[in-house]
Amino acid sequence: MDRREFIKKGFVITAIGTVGGFSLVNLMGRSREIYFRPPGALPEDEFLAACIRCGKCVQDCPYDTLVLADIRDGISVGTPYITFRSVPCYMCEDLPCIAACPTDALDHSLTDVNKMNIGTAVITDREACLSLNGIRCEICYRVCPLIDKAITLNKQEQAITHRHTVFEPVIHKDFCTGCGICENACPLDETAIRVIPSERGDKAGHYFYLREQQS
């Protein structure tokens, strides 16, 4: 076992709480997890560089949605993040977190909370989702602040009884802000709807061409 091998396998802590800045980010490697950042956050690399770990957004969040990453979060230590299952973002119309941010880590030009994009909700467990089994749940739909826009119900016949409807919650990326209220409210032990980063799928957008052709 040599030094390189030893370090490569592990979780590497190189800095604590007192450092920041773009140069160090490159130097220090990355944490393994995905962090959901406050509304208007820059892309993750730039956010880590721009965030000065002042904690002001956390202080001004009226719902305690935002918490500070600690030492276990490695490189992200001292940065704000959201755990939707604990407290989701309740989409304050005046965006106090952005107002509190002294740098450009949170985009000050974002003024319409409905345009924020923390991530996008998706049904991650279709087998467990109660609504998809025909149970009249659809809690994620009804608690959605952008009900009928970000989440709509797709209706089809329940295949076993042939007398009922399956109300399938369908999430629309164009409207979903990733506030996570749906993930928070899901009644299952392991939530069937989760917010994931918005960048996914075919980033080059080839299928948009296809979609335009069809429509």
Binding site: F6, I7, K9, F11, V12, I13, T14
Partner: peptide
């Protein structure tokens, strides 16, 4: 440690070397 009798695996969890 790895060379001791009965050891199956040694895993590094964290390493602080600032």
């Amino acid at each position: 440690i790895q060379s001791l009798d009965g050891i199956l695996n040694v895993e590094l969890v964290s390493h602080f070397f600032e």
